[in-house]
Amino acid sequence: MGLTLEAEQRMEDVGVTAFFEEDRATWIAVVRETREFIVNQFPDGALIRRDDVAKALVPVLEVHEDFKDYRNAQKLRAKYWIRDFADLLVDRAWDHMEQRE
Rank of each mutant, 00 (worst) to 15 (best):
V16P: 07
R92W: 04
R77W: 01
F85W: 02
V16Q: 06
Q74V: 03
G2A: 14
P43A: 12
E22Q: 11
W27D: 07
F67W: 00
H96K: 15
A93P: 01
E65N: 08
I82L: 06
A56Q: 08
F20E: 06
E62M: 11
L57T: 02
V16S: 06
Y80G: 01
R32P: 03
V53T: 07
A54T: 08
R71W: 07
R77E: 12
E21W: 10
V30G: 07
L5T: 15
Y80M: 08
T4Q: 12
D91T: 09
Q41S: 13
V53C: 06
K55H: 05
D52P: 01
P43I: 08
A18G: 11
T26N: 09
H64E: 12
I48M: 07
L89F: 02
V14S: 05
H96G: 10
P59Y: 07
L5W: 12
P43E: 13
A18R: 15
D44G: 10
W27K: 13
L61D: 00
R100T: 15
R10N: 14
E65R: 13
F19L: 09
W81A: 09
Y70R: 01
K55Y: 06
R92H: 04
R50N: 06
E21F: 13
Y70C: 01
F67G: 11
G45R: 06
I82W: 00
T26M: 13
L47V: 15
E98S: 11
G15K: 05
D13Q: 13
V30R: 10
A73M: 04
F20L: 13
A46S: 15
A93D: 00
R24N: 12
N72K: 00
K79T: 10
R92P: 00
G15N: 06
R49L: 14
P43N: 11
A78M: 10
A56R: 03
D52S: 07
K79S: 04
A78V: 01
V60N: 03
F37Y: 14
H64F: 10
K79V: 11
V31T: 12
L88F: 05
E101S: 11
N40E: 15
N40H: 14
W27E: 03
D95T: 12
G2S: 14
T26W: 13
I48H: 09
E6G: 12
T4W: 07
R71T: 02
I38M: 10
D44W: 05
F19Y: 13
D66G: 04
R50G: 05
R32I: 05
A73P: 00
K68W: 01
N40D: 12
E12F: 10
R83W: 05
T4C: 08
E6D: 15
V30S: 09
A78P: 00
D84L: 00
T17C: 11
V53S: 02
V90H: 08
K75A: 11
F19H: 09
R35Q: 06
V14L: 11
R50I: 04
F67V: 04
D84R: 05
L61G: 02
A78D: 13
L88D: 08
F20P: 01
